[in-house]
Simulated scan of single mutants.
Amino acid sequence: MTADTSLASLALSELARDRALLGRTSTAERVAGILRERIAGGSFRPGVRLSEERICGALGVSRNTLREAFRLLTHERLLVHRLNRGTFVRVLTPADIMDIYRVRRLVECAALRELGDPPFRLDDVEGAVAAGEQAAAEGRWADCSTANIRFHQAVAGLAGSRRTDDLMRGVLAELRLAFHIMDDPRRFHEPYLARNRQIVRTLEAGDAESAERQLGFYLEDSRRQLIEAYPESTPD
C-alpha cells in the first residue's frame, strides 16, 4: 500500500465521522464544506483522485449531491475534472501561486490601508496569532498552518466586507494546496509566527501604514519561498 493510498483510506474514515455534520438537511454546499476542510488539511493531497463511490458511502450522500459538491469545488479551483478519468484534487502551478499572491497583496494590504483611525478591532487577528503560537509550542505544525490562514483571513476581515471575506476564503483555501509541497512545515511556518505577532503589535500601536508595509514584505518573502520550493513541472 502506498503512502497516498494509506492517507486516502484514513481520509475516508474521517469523512465517515463527518457524516454527522450533515444532519437532516444534507446539501451539496455542506458536502463541499467538509471536503474543502479535508483538502485544506491534507487528507486529500494535490493530484489524488477522489472516488465517488467511496466518498458517497462515507458521507451517506447520493452521487448527484456529491457531483454538485465537486462542481462547486471545481469552480473554486480546488478540484479538476478530467474526461474519462474522474475528479482530482488540483495541483497548482507556479503561475497559480504568483496570481494568488497578487490577489492577496491587493486585498490584505488594502484592508490595512483603509482602516481609518485607531484603535482597531483586532480580536480575530490576535486570536489567530495566539492560536498559531500555541500550536507551535506544542509541535502541531499542521494546526500552525491553519492558524496562519486564519490570521490572513482576519486581516482581510478588517475591511468589514462580506464579499472580501468570501473572496479571501476561496483564495486561501486554494493556497493551502501549495503548502503541501513543503517537506518541512515547521521550517516554512515558524518564521512567520513572529512576523504575525509584529504586525499585531504595530496595529495595536495604531500604525496601520507601517503594518501594511510589514505585510507587503512578508507576502513577498512567502511567495518567493514557495516558488523556489515548487517543482519545475507539474501535472496537467
Rank of each mutant, 00 (worst) to 15 (best):
R63I: 04
R54V: 02
E52W: 01
I34V: 15
V61T: 14
L59K: 09
L7N: 15
W141C: 00
D99H: 15
I55M: 11
F88G: 10
C109N: 07
N148A: 12
L66W: 04
E228Y: 02
R104E: 08
P94R: 06
V91G: 01
G216Y: 09
T65P: 04
E138G: 03
C144R: 00
P94S: 02
R71Y: 03
C144G: 12
I199W: 06
A156S: 13
G170W: 01
D166C: 05
D165P: 00
V107P: 06
R150L: 12
E133C: 00
G57I: 08
A205S: 15
H152W: 13
L15M: 13
D96I: 07
H180D: 07
R67K: 15
A208V: 06
E52M: 10
G170S: 09
I34Y: 09
A69N: 02
G132H: 09
C109R: 13
H75L: 13
A205H: 05
F70K: 08
S43W: 02
E228L: 06
R17W: 09
R104M: 05
E220C: 02
C109K: 10
V31W: 07
A154H: 05
D96Y: 04
A178T: 01
D207G: 11
H189Q: 03
G170V: 03
E138Y: 05
G23H: 03
L15I: 02
L226T: 01
R213Q: 15
A194H: 12
G86C: 15
V129R: 13
R104W: 00
R54E: 11
E52S: 15
N64A: 13
R85N: 07
R224Q: 14
F179Q: 10
G42C: 02
Q134L: 13
T202L: 05
S210Y: 00
G47W: 12
E76M: 02
R187S: 08
L92V: 05
P235Y: 11
L215K: 09
L21Y: 02
R77W: 10
F70S: 05
E133A: 04
W141H: 02
L59G: 11
L21C: 05
R201F: 06
C56D: 04
D166A: 15
E52G: 01
D184T: 06
A58L: 01
R85Y: 12
E52D: 09
W141S: 04
D117P: 01
A130S: 10
G160L: 09
A147Y: 10
R121Q: 13
D221E: 14
T146V: 12
P235G: 01
L73M: 08
P118L: 05
T164C: 14
Y230E: 08
I97S: 07
G41T: 02
H81P: 08
